[in-house]
C-alpha cells in the first residue's frame, strides 16, 4: 500500500460505491468513516488497476467480485493474543467473574480470520472454563470466516506472536516469579517446513462461526452473552453507528455482562451512562 493523500477517492465516487453496493446487496457502508473508506477504496482501485465506474459495474454483475471487494475494504488485521495487556484484562479481570456460572457465552464480533477466537479458547482451556463456554464468532466477510473455521495460519506471519502466548499463558504480570510451562503443542502444531501453524482439532471444533454485519442490529446467535469482544472493528465506523452498536451490544449482554474493545477505543457521549468502565473493561449497568 502506498501512502496517499486523504480523500484521494473523491466523495462523489465514494457515494457511487455506497449506493451501488446498497442497491445490489445487503451491505451498507453509509456509516463507515469516510476517510478510512476512501483509503480502502483507493487501495482496491489500485490493486484492480481500475476506475470507480468500472468497479461499480463489475460489482453489479458479479457476486463473487462484490464479496472479494468487501473483504478488501474491511481491515482484517488480527493476531494471536494481540496486545497481551488486553488478554491480562480478560484473564484476571473478566473470566474469574464467571467462576460460579454454569455456562459462559462469549461473542467475538468481527473475528476476521479467527486468531483472537483461538486465543480465547486456549485461555479458557488453561483456566478450566472450556467445557462450560459457548464461543460464538462472526464477521461481515464469508471468506475470512472460512479461514477462521480451518484454524490454519502461516507460521512466518505469526511466529512473533508466540511471544504473546508466553506473556499471556505462561507468565503472570502481577507475579514475575510465576511461570507455567505450557507447551505450544498442547494447542497447535507448528510445521516449519510447510510454514504452518495448525490449531488442534478440539479447538477447531468448538466455536460457532456465522456471518454477521454489525451495521444490522440483529442477533444471529439467538442468545445473550456474558462477554462480547469487539476489538478494532468500530474504529472504521462513524460516531453514530458506533453508538448504535454499543446500544445493540447492551441489549444483547446478560445483566452485568462484559464488553471488551480495542486498546485504543472508547465510548464517548450519553452511551457511557449504560456501562461501567474499569480500565479496559466495560460492564453493562
Amino acid at each position: 500500500m502506498e501512502a496517499e493523500e486523504t480523500l484521494a477517492v473523491p466523495i462523489e465516487e465514494i457515494q457511487l460505491f455506497i449506493e451501488t453496493v446498497k442497491g445490489c446487496s445487503e451491505y451498507n457502508f453509509s456509516d463507515y468513516s469516510v476517510k478510512s473508506l476512501s483509503r480502502r477504496l483507493e487501495k482496491v482501485l489500485i490493486d484492480n488497476k481500475t476506475t470507480m465506474a468500472n468497479l461499480v459495474t463489475k460489482i453489479r454483475n458479479n457476486k463473487d467480485f462484490l464479496e472479494k471487494t468487501v473483504r478488501d475494504i474491511t481491515v482484517n488485521t488480527t493476531e494471536l493474543f494481540r496486545d497481551p495487556k488486553a488478554w491480562h484484562a480478560i484473564k484476571y479481570g473478566i473470566l474469574p467473574q464467571f467462576k460460579d456460572y454454569n455456562t459462559v457465552n462469549i461473542w467475538h464480533a468481527g473475528c476476521s480470520t479467527g486468531q483472537e477466537v483461538y486465543s480465547m479458547l486456549i485461555l479458557l482451556y488453561e483456566m478450566d472454563f472450556f467445557h462450560k463456554a459457548n464461543v460464538f464468532a462472526s464477521d461481515i466477510n464469508i471468506q475470512v470466516l472460512e479461514e477462521a473455521k480451518k484454524g490454519v495460519y502461516k507460521y512466518r506471519f505469526n511466529i512473533e506472536y508466540l511471544d504473546n502466548f508466553d506473556k499471556v499463558i505462561k507468565e503472570n504480570p502481577y507475579n514475575p516469579d510465576e511461570h507455567t510451562d505450557v507447551p505450544y503443542s498442547k494447542y497447535f502444531d507448528i510445521n516449519k517446513v510447510n510454514d504452518i501453524i495448525k490449531m488442534k482439532q478440539f479447538l477447531v471444533a468448538k466455536p460457532v462461526f456465522k456471518k454477521h454485519d454489525l451495521v444490522k442490529p440483529e442477533n444471529v446467535f439467538y442468545t445473550k452473552f456474558d462477554l462480547i469482544v469487539c476489538r478494532n472493528v468500530l474504529i472504521y465506523f462513524n460516531f453514530d453507528l458506533q453508538n448504535r452498536i454499543f446500544d445493540f451490544f447492551h441489549d444483547n449482554l446478560f445483566d452485568s455482562g462484559f464488553l471488551l474493545l480495542g486498546m485504543h477505543e472508547s465510548m464517548l457521549g450519553p452511551i457511557t451512562a449504560k456501562y461501567d468502565k474499569r480500565g479496559l473493561i466495560y460492564r453493562k449497568k
Binding site: 502506498e2 468513516s33 478510512s36 488485521t77 474504529i235 477505543e265
Partner: peptide, 9 residues
Amino acid sequence: MALSTEEPV
C-alpha cells in the same frame, strides 16, 4: 483523531 489497524506501510 482516528486510529486504524490497516496494513503496515
